[in-house]
Simulated assay, not measured.
Amino acid sequence: MRLLFLGDVVGRSGREAVAERLPGIVEQYGFDFVVINGENASHGRGLTEAHYQNLRDAGADVVTLGDHAFDQRDTLSFIEREPNLLRPINMPPGTPGRGAMFVESRKGHRVLVVNALGRVFMGPVDDPFRAVEAAIAACPLGEQADSIIVDFHTEATSEIQGMGHFLDGRASLVVGTHTHIPTSDHRILRGGTALMADAGMCGDFDSVIGVDTEEPINRFLTGIANGRFSPAEGEATLCGVAVETDTRSGLATKVLPVRIGGSLSQALPEF
């Protein structure tokens, strides 16, 4: 089975790149299942229903969120009727939506997708390790689930690496989102789980993590806000990770970085 995970979509540039490139990538490389983190897709903060549908129409089987999950107020209502949209599983009880979803791929594979939020340098949330473990225990890899993908939205690379080793042998892919910078540590752990500390972003890298440079530089220099952050709108790079799994076990056999378009060095998922 071939899985594609794309990192945080940032603003119009990221949305347009996904819409233009993703259908061809899925067809060319034969991906069976696509997950996209969309928590910055709408004006750099949150996800509107229209932009969620744009990502789904482009080929996302599941869209995940993060610490900006509810920055767009309408997400509070439409997330309840969209089973393929996930917010972090370890948000407080009573938070609208769900943090894990069992989805059938276009070829009939059973895929469990889990979204979690880190606690290191982030706001207070429940324990992500126990929350993710409970979701996976309910649909074990190689039994109920043909593949398991965990999007761990966290600031610290140490926390995502800890999650990867914690779930080694029990998930197909554990991947970090949130920092918007793709890491080069993609690998398969000893137990067969693919791990990448951050998938990067789908956005314009001629920026400060997807934001037009003027306001971030002003704040670095003065410590004073002079306006709102605005997403950069140049050509985006699609960043993420591609994984091929064993049909019987669901564990990873190949893991490859993905960087397509824009200003970063290119990395195509040549299986």
Score class of each variant (00 low, 15 high):
residue 207 S to M: 02
residue 165 H to I: 12
residue 152 F to K: 08
residue 163 M to N: 13
residue 107 K to H: 14
residue 172 S to P: 05
residue 200 G to D: 08
residue 211 V to C: 10
residue 101 M to S: 14
residue 162 G to N: 10
residue 98 R to M: 07
residue 225 A to D: 12
residue 121 F to D: 08
residue 193 T to H: 07
residue 157 T to G: 02
residue 104 E to N: 13
residue 109 H to K: 15
residue 150 V to K: 00
residue 181 I to G: 00
residue 128 P to R: 08
residue 159 E to R: 08
residue 140 P to V: 06
residue 127 D to A: 03
residue 117 L to K: 12
residue 178 H to M: 01
residue 214 E to Y: 14
residue 183 T to K: 02
residue 181 I to N: 07
residue 132 V to Y: 02
residue 161 Q to T: 13
residue 118 G to V: 04
residue 202 C to A: 11
residue 113 V to R: 03
residue 151 D to K: 04
residue 191 G to K: 08
residue 117 L to H: 12
residue 146 D to K: 02
residue 101 M to N: 13
residue 218 N to D: 14
residue 187 R to C: 15
residue 123 G to S: 13
residue 204 D to R: 06
residue 207 S to A: 07
residue 190 R to D: 15
residue 226 N to C: 10
residue 103 V to W: 01
residue 111 V to M: 06
residue 184 S to A: 15
residue 126 D to C: 11
residue 150 V to D: 03
residue 137 A to H: 04
residue 212 D to Q: 13
residue 149 I to T: 10
residue 118 G to Q: 01
residue 146 D to W: 05
residue 100 A to H: 07
residue 215 E to N: 11
residue 97 G to A: 08
residue 97 G to M: 01
residue 152 F to V: 13
residue 190 R to P: 13
residue 224 I to L: 15
residue 167 L to R: 05
residue 173 L to M: 06
residue 200 G to Q: 05
residue 166 F to Q: 06
residue 151 D to G: 07
residue 108 G to I: 09
residue 208 V to Q: 11
residue 123 G to D: 13
residue 163 M to F: 14
residue 202 C to F: 00
residue 164 G to V: 06
residue 226 N to F: 12
residue 194 A to W: 04
residue 140 P to A: 00
residue 99 G to N: 05
residue 202 C to Y: 08
residue 175 V to W: 04
residue 188 I to F: 09
residue 206 D to N: 15
residue 106 R to E: 14
residue 92 P to T: 12
residue 132 V to P: 03
residue 205 F to S: 05
residue 181 I to S: 07
residue 168 D to W: 01
residue 126 D to R: 15
residue 141 L to V: 03
residue 114 V to R: 02
residue 211 V to D: 12
residue 128 P to Q: 10
residue 185 D to Y: 06
residue 126 D to S: 14
residue 152 F to T: 08
residue 198 D to H: 12
residue 173 L to P: 05
residue 217 I to D: 09
residue 140 P to G: 01
residue 149 I to V: 15
residue 144 Q to G: 04
residue 225 A to H: 12
residue 124 P to H: 11
residue 152 F to G: 02
residue 112 L to F: 00
residue 226 N to A: 13
residue 208 V to F: 13
residue 190 R to G: 15
residue 187 R to L: 14
residue 92 P to R: 15
residue 227 G to N: 02
residue 126 D to K: 14
residue 105 S to W: 05
residue 219 R to K: 13
residue 149 I to N: 08
residue 116 A to L: 12
residue 201 M to L: 04
residue 170 R to W: 08
residue 227 G to I: 01
residue 124 P to W: 09
residue 121 F to N: 11
residue 160 I to G: 06
residue 172 S to R: 07
residue 124 P to G: 09
residue 192 G to L: 04
residue 98 R to S: 04
residue 146 D to Q: 04
residue 169 G to P: 05
residue 214 E to Q: 14
residue 220 F to T: 03
residue 102 F to N: 00
residue 126 D to Y: 15
residue 201 M to Y: 02
residue 225 A to C: 10
residue 130 R to Y: 13
residue 193 T to K: 07
residue 168 D to Q: 00
residue 205 F to V: 09
residue 102 F to K: 03
residue 127 D to V: 02
residue 98 R to C: 05
residue 128 P to G: 10
residue 217 I to T: 10
residue 184 S to Q: 14
residue 221 L to K: 10
residue 131 A to H: 15
residue 115 N to T: 11
residue 111 V to W: 02
residue 185 D to M: 07
residue 123 G to C: 03
residue 204 D to A: 07
